[in-house]
Simulated scan of single mutants.
Amino acid sequence: MRCPNCNSKNLGKIGTEQYYCWNCFLELSFEDGKMNINQIEEDGSLSSLNDIFYQQGS
């Protein structure tokens, strides 16, 4: 598996169906067969980046 952002294979497993990219610091998780991509904020919260990676109508 590769990171959809930086194409790196440098991913670590952090939970069931959850991965972390050590190159671009994104958290990837899988739910119902769909990949969710999140940025980890300074306070530890997650911000979804799905709208950037999954553009509607393209």
Rank of each mutant, 00 (worst) to 15 (best):
E17T: 07
Q55E: 12
F53S: 01
L49A: 01
E27W: 00
T16K: 13
Y20Q: 08
G44W: 10
D43R: 10
D43V: 09
N7L: 15
N23S: 11
N38K: 03
T16D: 15
G12V: 07
F53V: 06
T16L: 09
N38W: 00
L28A: 13
F25Q: 05
G15S: 07
N7C: 11
N7K: 15
F25E: 11
L28S: 10
M35D: 04
S48Q: 02
K9E: 15
E41C: 04
Y20A: 08
G12Y: 04
N36L: 06
I40N: 07
G57N: 15
D32A: 08
S48D: 05
I14V: 15
L11I: 09
N7F: 15
I37A: 04
C3G: 13
G57K: 11
S58K: 15
M1D: 12
Y20S: 02
N36Y: 07
C3K: 14
I40E: 08
N36F: 04
E27L: 09
N50S: 00
S45F: 06
K9L: 13
L26H: 11
Q39M: 08
K13L: 06
D32V: 02
D51T: 08
N5R: 14
C21E: 05
T16N: 13
N5W: 03
S47H: 10
I40Q: 07
D32L: 05
Y54I: 07
C21M: 11
T16C: 03
C3W: 05
F53D: 01
I52A: 02
N10V: 01
L28K: 01
F25Y: 10
C3F: 07
F53R: 05
D32N: 10
C21Q: 04
C21S: 04
N23M: 11
K9Y: 10
I37T: 03
N23H: 06
L28H: 12
N50G: 00
E42H: 12
K34Y: 02
S45E: 12
S29G: 06
C3H: 10
I52E: 03
S29A: 06
S45I: 02
F30Y: 14
D32W: 07
L28F: 09
P4I: 00
G33D: 11
F25I: 06
K9H: 13
L49M: 09
G12M: 04
C24Y: 03
C21G: 05
C3L: 10
F30G: 01
F53C: 02
E42G: 01
C24W: 03
I37M: 05
G12C: 03
K34A: 07
S29P: 03
W22N: 10
F30I: 12
S8N: 13
T16A: 13
L28W: 04
M35W: 01
